[in-house]
Design a protein around this nucleic acid. Structure first.
Ligand SMILES: [Zn+2]
Ligand SMILES: [Zn+2]
Ligand SMILES: [Zn+2]
Ligand SMILES: [Zn+2]
Lengths: 132, 132
DNA sequence: TTTAAATATGTTATATTATAACAAAGCGTA
DNA sequence: TACGCTTTGTTATAATATAACATATTTAAA
């Protein structure tokens, strides 16, 4: 649909489209179920596509949920710096794109002097709706 | 060993001790294997202890690895604010305890105004040893 | 154009991680 | 004692993920 999608293989496109259409994070086996009508029959086909899409930064894995969301952040072509906001009640997940935060984390150095090339941050709380 | 350990049940103590002794994050089934000589025979026994220890802040789950580490941070009695440094090469995991970082994250607010009561941050890179 | 390498796919089986469901035991206390 | 509550034990199964190997498709040299 977008330009870059042309670089994706058939299975990768199928999997990406279903994740992009979803309003919430999708689990691998729910993706598998959804794409069976399109000829993808087995877990490895889904997991391969997921792995590739993650490397390309088109999707991200929400580690605390073992679920996958489309990247909503155009500048996030390589997924080495991700931050999410997760509602404990309705399970809504939003990708945070906050320049100050990403700058702060990208430059963060701990006592050991270790330099990081990747981070993933997950915030938990109650979203507006669920706070009411 | 410490005072608070007295509040733990037998299985919880057994599981905590093995995690504290370990130099690297332990997987649930490797814990299960290790504690079988002490009478813990089935996964639910291990997972129950893990769940409880996490709630108490005695251990943390490294989400990207599905593995568990003992908390090295005395102030971390409730595990609602965790940050880890993970080596991509040797898989070493260190809990980061950096007041500036935790203050920054505890006070972080995104555009939506959602307020967070918990976060987990995982940094990836190469540790000193592996950089050489 | 032929050949070879690299990439993507299909398929079966299996490994790994985690929970459901229910029974029994232990413990504090009214 | 008898009641509630927590912990434990146990079996089975659900959910997540990968190994291994065969085939097909695309790409790029030769
Ligand atoms: Zn993104
Ligand atoms: Zn919500
Ligand atoms: Zn801690
Ligand atoms: Zn290392």
């Amino acid at each position: 649909m977008t330009q870059k999608i042309d670089f994706l293989s058939k299975n990768q496109q199928i999997v990406l489209e279903i994740i992009e259409k979803a309003k919430e994070p999708l689990k691998a086996y729910s993706i598998l179920f959804s794409v069976q009508k399109k000829g993808i029959k087995a877990p490895p086909q889904v997991y391969r596509a997921l792995d590739r899409l993650i490397k390309l930064g088109k999707i991200h894995k929400i580690e605390s949920k073992n679920a996958f969301v489309a990247c909503k952040n155009d500048s996030c072509t390589i997924s080495n710096a991700t931050a999410f906001s997760i509602c404990d009640s309705c399970e809504m997940v939003t990708e945070i794109s906050n320049p100050k935060l990403s700058k702060y984390l990208a430059n963060f150095q701990d006592e050991t002097g270790m330099r990081y090339n990747k981070y993933n941050l997950e915030f938990f709380g109650l979203c507006k709706k669920c706070k009411k």
